[in-house]
């Protein structure tokens, strides 16, 4: 059973970091980059494009991390999808991370 705990721990750490990174990235994009581009009228700049693109690749890694953890913790498909979708709503991935942390501990 020790190896199983270890692999759950690994999957949990992976998920925790990804939820944090994607959460910060999406929050910055939504509350800083979007207003900068559209409210201030700067349009698509090289920096904001780089930021959106980076998020575009971080998010799939978050999905992989979620899927990986869902297998280890034997989540239902619905729950897995819900946690994945949480990553698309600004600040929601922090909530998802808290919920999963409660389950783990």
């Amino acid at each position: 059973m020790a190896t199983e705990t270890k692999s759950i721990n690994g999957a949990w750490t992976f998920f925790k970091y990804m939820a944090f990174i994607v959460g910060i990235a999406l929050a910055v994009l939504t509350f800083v980059a979007l207003p900068y581009e559209y409210l201030l009228g700067h349009g698509k700049t090289a920096l904001t494009t780089a930021a959106w693109t980076a998020h575009g690749w971080l998010f799939p890694i978050y999905l992989i991390a979620t899927f990986n953890l869902s297998l280890k913790l034997k989540w239902s498909t619905g729950k897995t999808l819900l946690i994945m979708v949480a990553g698309t709503v600004p600040l929601m991935s922090f909530v998802a991370e808290r919920k999963v942390a409660q389950e783990i501990n």
Binding site: K44, T49, T53, G56, W57, F59, P60, L63, I64, F67
Partner: peptide, 21 residues
């Protein structure tokens, strides 16, 4: 437009991820 080219790749990647899942 590079941003949208990369998003195109993102969506294909999502599709592959769903196949794997």
């Amino acid at each position: 437009h590079m941003r949208n080219v990369i998003y195109t790749a993102n969506w294909i990647f999502f599709a592959l991820l769903i196949v794997a899942m």
